[in-house]
């Protein structure tokens, strides 16, 4: 008890240690950037960016307030704001329900929440059918043959009406 008190009076309080945080750069909603961005850490954009963004081994997030017009190269991309441009991702692209995306997406996998607006051209890294998907489930299973009951409107080659 005595020791503790003595120590407190003898030494000035130590400066607070920096809290360890994930390496991430944030472009705030009042920031506007035009040009090329390259980085080696994750990037969160809540502001406005026009140009190109390259965070090859990292995650790019376009936040809900973000407005981006850019060519994007990243490991993983999450879009919750407005993004016009092409995404080239070595990993996953996630489009959340708040997103408004137009452009091309090349990625290993993609997830899209219902409600997101997409005008996109999508190319995914192909995995042969019947292989096991990342979720562990086979991509294709065999179910019983569906019952076919058709109403033929017109033979092929002939025009109806």
């Amino acid at each position: 008890m005595l020791k503790k008190n003595r120590k407190a009076t003898a030494e000035p309080p130590a400066p607070p240690k920096p809290v360890p945080v994930d390496q991430k750069t944030i472009i705030g909603d009042q920031i506007s950037i035009e040009g090329a961005i390259r980085g080696k850490e994750d990037l969160l954009i809540e502001g406005s960016v026009k140009g190109s963004i390259e965070v090859k081994a990292h995650r790019l997030t376009v936040g809900v307030k973000g407005q981006v017009e850019a060519e994007i190269l990243a490991a993983n991309v999450t879009v919750s704001g407005k993004l016009a441009g092409n995404i080239n991702a070595t990993g996953k692209v996630e489009i959340t329900k708040e997103a408004d995306f137009s452009g091309e997406i090349k990625a290993r996998s993609i997830s899209v929440e219902d409600g997101a607006y997409l005008k996109a051209v999508i190319e995914m890294d192909r995995e042969p059918l019947n292989r096991v998907s990342p979720s562990g489930k086979p991509v294709e299973k065999t179910f019983s043959e569906p019952i076919k009951e058709s109403l033929i409107l017109a033979d092929k080659g002939s025009k109806g009406n």
Binding site: S111, V112, L118, E127
Partner: peptide, 27 residues
């Protein structure tokens, strides 16, 4: 032309050369 959903993107993107989606329902 939508409504665009994740499952359909996966289904069709694995079967086509290029998948175009344009969600006209949201528009």
């Amino acid at each position: 032309v939508g409504p665009v959903c994740q499952e359909n993107i996966r289904f069709f993107a694995s079967r086509v050369k290029k998948l175009y989606v344009c969600d006209m329902f949201i528009r």
